[in-house]
Each structure stands twice: as C-alpha cells, then as structure tokens.
Design a protein around this nucleic acid. Structure first.
Lengths: 121, 121, 121, 121
DNA sequence: GTGGTCTAGACCACA
DNA sequence: GTGGTCTAGACCACG
C-alpha cells in the first residue's frame, strides 16, 4: 500500500483519512490489530512521527485504542464505527452536491442524475 | 490562482481537469479569452510546455479554440459544453457511488442518504 | 530509414504521415511491433520527444497501441486500418484533382487521362 | 511567393518544377516576361546562381526563351506548352497510381474511387 | 529495457 | 505580443 499524498494538505490528516476509510469499509475489521508504527511508516514512506500523530489523533476520536505492550487495535465499539461511517458518507454527499451545484444543477436534477446512473449501470 | 497538484497524476491532466471544471461551472464563460500560455504557466508554476500540452489537448476535445496570434478562447458550442458537464457529473456520481459502496451501502441506502441530506440542509 | 523532412511542415506531422503510409501499405503489418521511441528517434535523427509526440498522436487515432514497458504495436483493428487507407486514398485523389484542374482539365478529361494511362502501361 | 524546399532534392530542380507548373497553369501566360534573375532570387530566397541554372535548363527545354537585353519570356509555342502540360499530367497520374497501388488497390478500384470522389464533391 | 512526463530554453510564423 | 515546434536532457513507473 503506497499512498500518494496531495501537496498542500498535512500528510498526517491524509493518513487519518485513508485509515478511517479502511476501517469504515471493513478492510481493517473491529478488533483487528494494526501494523506497528515503524512498520507502517516504512510501508507508506513517511516519518514515524507523522504516523504517530495520525494514530494518536484517531485514538482521541475513539477509532483505535492502544494496548501499551501489544500495539494498536481497531475499536469494536459499533457506535463509534457507525458514527464514522455516517460522517464519511455525509462528507461524500456534501462534496458531490457542491460539485454538482457548481455545474448549475438543481437538487432535483442531482437526484435524477444519480437515479439514472444507478439504473444504467 | 496557485494550483496544488497531486503526486502521481500527470500535471497536464490535472490542469485539463481544473480548467474543464472552471469552464463547465461558468468561471470561464463561453467565448471568454483564456490567459496566454506563458502567463498561465508562470501563474501556476509549471513549464510553458506542460501548459501547452494541456491546452492543445483541450483544443482537440473542442473545449477551447485558438485564434493564432490572439490567444485562446472558451468554445461557445453549447453542445460541447453540455457534453462536458455531463461527463463531469457522471464522474462525480461514479466516485460517490464507489465510495458509498465501500461503506457497504446499497443503492437504495445511497439514494435515501442523499435525499435526507438535501432535505436537512 | 533516414527520412528527409520538408521545411515548413511540423516534423511530427510528417512522421505521422510516413508511418501511416507504411502501416496502410502493409510495410508494418497489423500487430507488428514498432521500433522503440529512442531507437526510432536516433534512426531518423530527431529528438525522442518529437517522436513521442507523433506516436502518442497516432495512438489517440487508434492506429497504434502501446503495451507499457514492452513497446508499441500496430493496431490489428481492421476497421481502423481500412479507414486509414480510405483517408489516404481520398487525400491522394484530392491532390491529383487539384493539380489537374490547375492544368485547366475538366473532370472528364481527368478521368480519361487516367484511363488512357492505365491502358498504356 | 516564398517557396519552401524539400531537403534532399536539388533546389534548382524544385524551382524548375514550380515554374513549369506556374507556366502550364497559365499563372505565367505565353509571351509573359518573367522577373529578373536577381529579383526572383531575392524573392524566393536562393542564390542567383541557383536560379540561373534553373532558367537555363528551362531554356534548353524550350519553355522560356531569353532576349539578351530585355529579359526572359515564357514561350508562346503552343506545342511546347501542351507537351509540358501532358508531361506534368502524366507525372501526376503516375504518382497517384503508385500511391494507390501501395494501398493494395487494383486499377479498377482506383478508377472507381476517383469517380466516386468527383461525384461526391 | 520500455514508454511517459516535465523542465529549460530556443526559434519560428503571424499580424 | 500570440501560439507552435523542437531540442536536450532529466526523472519516474513498470516489470
């Protein structure tokens, strides 16, 4: 997994994003152990400190928790996870709507376009 | 206008993207004159050749046309423009659906989530 | 194969022309591998970028396709090839007619002259 | 009239060609006075000697004749002119046929293609 | 090794 | 001044 990062956005935030999505989508399941900071850092080519920051932020969000001696684990708190999914889904929708409105589409047109797309494919 | 470019995607493609969106959204209106290659290149901090490539690709797509010695202009062919908007809107929808499906949402759930979001806001 | 280029016409266009003819005439058969960009560039004495441009333009026309890391190949899409031949033949005819008309020949005289030539030889 | 010359073919031959065509097509009419060597040479950007050679070759072909003190004139010998036209027209046809045969077209196909083209346009 | 991209900078034609 | 072309040479991704 070699991430490509955008310029202009702090990398640790981009990592939080990627990880959140991986967890929300079940790639990392509830209770799964995450790779070690060092290992992970090498994997994606960033400084361990950057990753450390990403992890501790996610910890404060309750998405991962740390077992001092054993490593980090994905939370198995279903409430936290469903909130995470809701947050992501809202963000996605918001982004879509913003983009579509820039194309001068009304809410109704947006909905219809999506319906049509889902039917076509 | 200082663009930030993603790593891993050719800059000239990103420029095409940005410009296409600006045109589709009306930031550059049909018939508007675009900045000169050199001016634009300095503006966004890339080599003139890179921009040249972006521009001439867009020309072959019919989105802009060139008046030699005078500059480049946004097409006023409404058909091309509406096709452009359709292409962008499809891409946006596709991206949304892909993301939502990763969160294990069914097509119906996706539609409902959007409806709810549009009503709430 | 050392091409001589006309002044006043972009080299990359002349290369496209030469190559198109070679392909249409079967000198490069459908599916044949073409020389690598660098090799070809040295061969005909132009900068690799110039050749790259010619090749990628031909790719967008569907005449060649690229197998990344392996090289470029002549398409084996018979439809594209016959379109190419039709395009070339039209161009040739157009040039002939233009020339003959400059000699004040009518369409009928042109046709007759060709018939006579074909019978004589 | 600024000619563009091909590399690899003697310029004086290319000039003969251009001039022959101009005369055959009536751009220079029978009996017309031609520009002076020096004037003409500057016009098309070649060395006067090169032009001199072109002119004297054409003189030996009977296409132009020289009046020592007055300059060069297009012949008004209709026989020479019609032979010139015939020569050019044959050359054009030969070139067309050669090209079309490279595209694997039979004589009949060639004739049909030309007929079709003349009808279409 | 292949193709793809990018920069730097030059020269040209046009009007 | 505009866009268009070309060269020289570097770096990258892929396998």
């Amino acid at each position: 997994m070699a991430y490509k990062f955008k310029n202009g956005i702090p990398i640790y935030l981009q990592i939080i994003d990627e990880l959140s999505i991986s967890i929300a989508s079940g790639k990392y399941a509830p209770g799964d152990k995450l790779p070690s900071v060092r290992e992970f850092a090498v994997d994606i080519g960033v400084n361990p400190n950057t990753l450390q920051r990403a992890f501790s932020t996610m910890e404060s969000m309750g998405i991962v928790h740390v077992d001092r001696t054993n490593g980090r684990y994905v939370t198995d708190d279903e409430k936290v996870l469903s909130e995470l999914r809701a947050k992501l889904s809202k963000r996605y929708i918001e982004e879509l709507v913003t983009r579509m409105r820039k194309l001068k589409m009304s809410d109704e047109e947006i909905l219809n376009a999506i319906k049509r797309w889902l039917e076509e494919v």
